[in-house]
Amino acid sequence: MASSDTDPRLLVLAPGDNIAVARLEIAADTTLSVAGRTVTLQRALGFGHKIALREIAAGEKIVKYGAPIGRATEAIPHGGYVHSHNLTSDYMASTVPVEAAP
């Protein structure tokens, strides 16, 4: 695991994963180490949200816990935030429903 050169506030779930998740909310502008690179967060990273452990090319699988959870819709920089703006399901065309049910 890349945990030794990754900030302890980030959880690397399995070897080979290309994302890590936040153990707790980390404020915007925080500078932290992500798999050997120093990254400053552009925005707050909520608990359970994902950050890229390396550069990820458009079309590449996002791997969490050793399993693919979809693919990148654009190139994601090392330390970049990973969510519905740049990650899409391989299973369903639209992942997040349009109508917001409470």
Binding site: A22, F47, H49, A67, P68, H83, D90, Y91
Partner: peptide
Amino acid sequence: PGNADGGLTTIEE
């Protein structure tokens, strides 16, 4: 939608 707020992006995830 609550799943996405919690950081989950896709049904696979």
